[in-house]
Simulated assay, not measured.
Amino acid sequence: MSTEKQLRREAGTVEENALKIDQNKAEQIIDALNTDLAATYVLYHQLRKHHWNVEGAEFEELHDWFGDAAEDAEDNADDIAERVQALGGVPVSGLESLAEHAPVESEGDDVYDVRTSMQNDLELYQNVIESVREHVALAEDLGDYASSELLRDVLEDLEDDAHEAQHFLEDDTLVLEEATH
């Protein structure tokens, strides 16, 4: 890291934006977007962890699903961060900042069986969905229809992935377990 530093924009500040969104409204929307950005990164890292650690009879399908779901989260995080920047804000990005802004927590570093992992993912999805849903309404109420639309797209991805996670947790399976007597 360079010892010479030229600060261009301080984290937590909001500049005037070219989108003609009032400064006060922009600050509220940026705060909401940064909350969802942080939550999305928590989700991303947990999904990526499960992608790395999944085992068992459904390894290939679940490995692929966790990877695809993590990519969805990463893409959504990128879109949210770019919108924060367009509104004149600074997207949260440091690990400490992400942890401070996230309204959700990951399951931690321990590795769990795949069913527990998927249940933890579904719960995390549900919590992120609630946050994003609230922020769709906030952006709409503040007249930022583009942020509202962006968050609706993010919400649709989250709901689709949560629905798929729920399907993995169903009790109907072709994989036979050995009977214990």
Rank of each mutant, 00 (worst) to 15 (best):
E4F: 10
L7C: 05
L7I: 08
R8N: 12
R9C: 11
R9S: 15
A11D: 05
A11Q: 06
V14W: 11
E16K: 09
L19F: 07
K20D: 11
I21S: 08
I21N: 00
E27F: 11
E27D: 10
I29C: 04
L33T: 02
L33A: 08
L33N: 09
L33E: 03
N34C: 00
T35H: 11
L37P: 06
L37G: 03
A38C: 08
A39P: 08
T40P: 00
Y41W: 07
H45E: 13
R48C: 05
H51Y: 02
H51E: 00
N53T: 13
G56Q: 00
E58P: 04
F59N: 07
E60T: 12
E61W: 10
D64T: 15
G67H: 06
D72A: 15
A73P: 05
E74N: 14
D75H: 15
D75W: 13
D75S: 14
A77E: 00
I80H: 04
R83A: 11
A86M: 07
G88M: 11
P91L: 09
P91E: 01
V92H: 09
V92P: 06
S93N: 13
G94C: 11
A99S: 05
A99G: 04
E100K: 07
H101P: 08
H101Y: 14
A102K: 14
G108Y: 09
G108K: 07
R115Y: 00
R115E: 09
T116P: 01
S117R: 04
N120W: 02
N120L: 08
Y125Q: 06
Y125F: 10
N127D: 15
E130I: 11
E130N: 14
V132L: 00
E134L: 10
H135F: 07
A137H: 12
A139H: 06
D144L: 11
Y145H: 14
A146K: 12
A146D: 07
E149G: 12
E149V: 10
V154E: 05
E156L: 06
L158I: 03
L158G: 07
E159W: 03
E159Q: 02
A162G: 05
E164N: 07
E164D: 07
A165S: 12
A165P: 01
Q166T: 02
L169D: 05
L169N: 01
D171N: 02
D171F: 06
D172F: 01
L174W: 15
L174I: 12
V175E: 09
V175F: 12
L176T: 08
E177F: 05
E178L: 06
A179N: 13
